[in-house]
Design a protein around this nucleic acid. Structure first.
Length: 254
DNA sequence: ATGGTGGACGATCCA
């Protein structure tokens, strides 16, 4: 089973890339972030033609997440329990024998900003929710745009990113608290080296120079760890015309 | 060089 995540940065603009990539890569399950459109605008028909059924938590202008799957999805959750949030950033579903949680983690802008406080508060609420989900769903995948590079080896220039947003110790500690629930970064179960990134700034020719960060993650629970066969990031779509600033990341499970 | 680009939307906000 192949599972993937992709921040498409506007599904309206990126639908041709999505159809092209999904048609080639053939994931069984694909989590999307930053679709930036309302549920009513979602391109169900185009994706159904590729064999996908979608569940959507859309929002106009900003945010918005979706889950595409070849199999039926059930027990849909679009809110973090007990945490009032107008921003559409989470989507959970049960697919086959897996529980899947799609996250578009708050960016945070700058460690001194109000948005950063929101990021940490949001991560705390999500972690509490996932702890609860794990109790009833031991076979859990948490995937999405985490807006956190877990370690310096996930950053092209750690010195210039030191204590900057996406890399700060406060964010990394929050991610570690999530992982400590019994989740594993599937990419790191398969690869030890640096230089692998999933996001490159649109500016300063960052992709051409491979100046990126690995911030799009697929976490698997203890019960799924032994089923991980391979993991990777498909950088090709980032080189296509008018790309998302993120590349799709994936994991295959036995 | 304290910038640069891109999406949404229609002046800035967000990333």
């Amino acid at each position: 089973m192949k599972i993937a995540t992709w921040n498409v940065n506007s599904l309206k603009v990126r639908l041709p890339h999505l159809l092209e990539w999904a048609g080639q890569a053939e994931p069984d399950l694909l989590a999307l972030q930053e679709i930036k459109q309302e549920n009513a605008a979602f391109p169900h028909a185009e994706l159904a033609a590729l064999g996908y059924q979608a569940v959507v938590s859309g929002q106009k202008t900003y945010n918005g997440v979706a889950l595409l799957a070849r199999a039926a999805q059930s027990a849909i959750v679009t809110e973090i329990p007990g945490y009032a949030d107008l921003q559409r950033r989470v989507l959970a579903a049960t697919v086959n024998d897996l529980r899947v949680i799609n996250l578009y983690v708050v960016n945070g802008q700058d460690p001194q900003s109000d948005k950063f406080r929101y990021k940490l508060e949001w991560l705390q609420a999500v972690t509490a929710w996932i702890a609860e989900e794990l109790r009833s769903h031991p076979r859990l995948v948490v995937l999405g745009d985490f807006n956190i590079a877990p370690e310096d080896r996930d950053v092209y220039d750690p010195e210039s990113w030191y204590e900057q947003v996406l890399c700060s110790s406060a964010e990394r500690a929050a991610l570690q608290r999530l992982l400590a629930l019994g989740l594993h970064d599937s990419f790191r179960l398969c690869h030890d080296d640096g230089g692998h990134y999933s996001w490159w700034d649109y500016r300063a020719a960052a992709f051409r120079r491979n100046q990126g960060l690995r911030i799009d993650l697929l976490l698997v629970s203890d019960a799924l760890r032994q089923r991980v066969v391979a993991a990777g990031i498909d950088t090709a779509p980032r080189s296509w015309e008018r790309p998302s600033d993120h590349a799709p990341a994936w994991v295959t499970l036995q």
